[in-house]
Each structure stands twice: as structure tokens, then as C-alpha cells.
Amino acid sequence: MADSQNAVEAVVIPAAPGRPEEYDAATRAALDHIDHQAVRTVADGRPERTRKGYAQDWASWTKFCAESGVPLLAVTPGTLVMFVEWLWTQPGWKKGTFTAPSTIDRRISGTVVSARADHGMRLEDGIARLARNRLKQLVKEMEEKGETRGRGQAPPLLVDHLVSISAACPDNLMGIRDRALVLMHFAVAGREHELASTRVRDYADAPGGIQADLRVSKVRPRVVPVPYGSRLSICPVRAWQAWKEAACLDDPDGYAWRRLHSRWHTVMEGGLQPESIGDVITRAGERAGIEIRFTGHSPRRGLATSSRLKGHDQIVIAKQGGWAPHSKVLAGYLEVVDQWEDNALLGVL
């Protein structure tokens, strides 16, 4: 046989892939750039309200650094503890008050996220653990002294309140809008920004009521089934249909919840801002003569409370409002109800 037939073919062994520690400076720089761009892309995809919140948190960190002499990018466990102690002494939302613990906790999160996303810092996991432990100590000391901070939890807006609010809404465009907004806000256990972002097409007719598509959410988008109510005065489906007809909301891409002209009270093209959604809720309660001051979070908490009073499971309530199935916040709302329904003293005294 020919030599070529007898020859053993050479086996080509591919070179071993280079290890990350062997990368040259140019490769490492290119990979760092890719990582930073990926972080920025995800950060830019956050809701506008979330981005504004993080910007405020970083501005607070910047002020702290300027006053304390800490380098701006020196985000470490120790400097975050210093940040907490500095925030603890800062004035709160109202004259004569100090920063609420919940605000401080958010400032910590926003600072860490901004350092990673906006400044390309590689921070260790759990970097804020020590700062949060310090915050817990300060809160405990505050409670032992009988002090309070912040506005506290939003009061729940319950079904009886809805009845009063609906009855007090005037028979004009503002009253029709406010009634529909309050009832839908309650029905979907919505967040202010979720309602503000909805368009007409997001409330689709269904055999049993409406499918509310809350496509813009800081947590996760969800489609919420809203059935017809048993009472006409507080039925969110009928209230929405009345508003849609009265406001001539014919453009499916137009905002669902519109502003009204301050003088002529005509429907405008622009939608309500998240803060304005909360203002509508507050004014609706005041109009009805309810002494409780409701906020934009009150309908959300009210749905959770009212649903629990009717015996619904936490998983079902969480799905309606877009909470995590085992949300600690939701569990806290439900505990207020459960403490009376599942009490160790029932049947004892």
C-alpha cells in the first residue's frame, strides 16, 4: 500500500483555553467594559420612579461624603455604618422630625445599587449587612425610649370606606373619575405608579368583568382579573365603564386615568402622575368626611385586609396584588387580621 495509506494521520489537539487569570490587560479591560454595559442596560430598564429614587439615595450619600470627608466611591461596610448614623440625625419629611428607619434602609439599598450600576464598583455580597444591623440597634433604642419616626404604615381603605367615598363623589367628570380610580385601585391592590402607567387597552372586557394588565411595575408585571361587584355603587367594572364612556376614552393607547383641566374640568390628553393618584385617594376620603387620612398605598393595604377578613389565603391575595407569595410586608398586613381570628384567648375567657 502507498506510504500515504500506511501513514498514521496526525491528531490535532486543540490548545487549552486560557484561564481568566492569564488574560492580558486589553482583554480584562474589554470584559470589564462589557460587564459595566450589561449592568447599565439593566439599570436603564428600571421604572422611572425607581431610577429617581436611586438618584435621590446617591445624592444623599454624596452629601454625607462631603460632610464627613469619606471618598465618594469608598462604599464599604464601615462607611455604610457611618452613613446610617449620619442619616439618623437628618431631618425628616416634616419640620421637627427625623429620617424614618424605612427611608434609611432604602438609602442604603439605593447607594449600593448606584455604586454597582452607575460607577462600576465590584462590591461584595452582603456589604450592607453591618449597616442594617446598626439600623436595627438604633430602632430598638428609639422604641425603648418611646419615640416614633416617619409617617407610619398607610391606613387600610376598607369596603365600608369605599361605600362612603363612592356616595360622596359628585355627578360630574371628576366624581366619575375619582370613583372609578379608587375602586380600581382597591380591586387590583395597585401601586400608584402601576395605575398611572395604564392605558385604555390595559382594561380589557372579559365575560366575568375586566382583565387589568398592569404592565409597568417595580416588582413584576401582572394581569389581574377584576370581577363584577355584587353592589352597583362600588363595582369597579361598572365604574370603569362609566368613566371610559363619560371621558370618551376612544384611543386604546391613551392614558386610562386622565388629568382634568383646572378651569374647564375637561379631559386632557396627559395622564395622572403617581403622586396625583395618591392625591385623588386622599381627597376622596376627605370628601366623604372620613377622619382617617388615606394615602396612595391605602387601597392596596385595604384589599389585603378586606380579603383576609373574608378568609382568603395569603397566596391568593399575593397574586392579586403582585406581592411575593411569602412577602413579609403582606404577612404583616394579614397578621393584623389574624391576631383576632386566631387568638390564644379565644374560647379561654
Rank of each mutant, 00 (worst) to 15 (best):
R132D: 03
P14D: 09
D253W: 09
G18P: 00
A38D: 15
R222F: 05
K95M: 03
E22V: 01
R258P: 00
L183H: 00
Y255L: 02
L157I: 07
K145R: 15
G18L: 13
Q37T: 13
E124Y: 01
L181K: 00
R215T: 06
A131S: 09
R258S: 01
N172M: 02
I292E: 12
T103R: 15
K94R: 14
L309N: 07
W243Q: 00
R220V: 04
V267P: 08
R49I: 03
G150S: 03
H193A: 08
L157S: 05
V329M: 15
R40M: 13
V237C: 07
F186V: 02
R258D: 00
L173H: 09
S306Q: 13
S307G: 10
S327Q: 08
A239S: 07
M142K: 01
N343Q: 06
R179I: 01
D125N: 14
V216I: 11
A59S: 13
D342P: 00
G45A: 13
S68V: 05
D342C: 08
T148M: 10
S60E: 11
S298G: 10
W340R: 10
D205A: 11
H265T: 03
L272V: 09
G278P: 03
P252L: 02
R132Q: 12
A324F: 08
V42T: 13
A10K: 15
I108D: 11
G311F: 12
A100L: 06
M142P: 02
E291V: 09
H185M: 04
G311D: 03
S109A: 14
M142T: 05
A324Y: 12
R263M: 08
Q37L: 15
V42C: 09
A128V: 05
R134A: 01
S276P: 01
E21F: 08
H119M: 07
A284F: 02
I315C: 04
W340L: 07
S298M: 10
V39I: 11
T103Q: 14
H119L: 07
I165L: 02
V224W: 10
G289P: 08
S68K: 14
P225A: 06
Y333I: 05
G69P: 12
H161D: 15
S230H: 14
P274K: 09
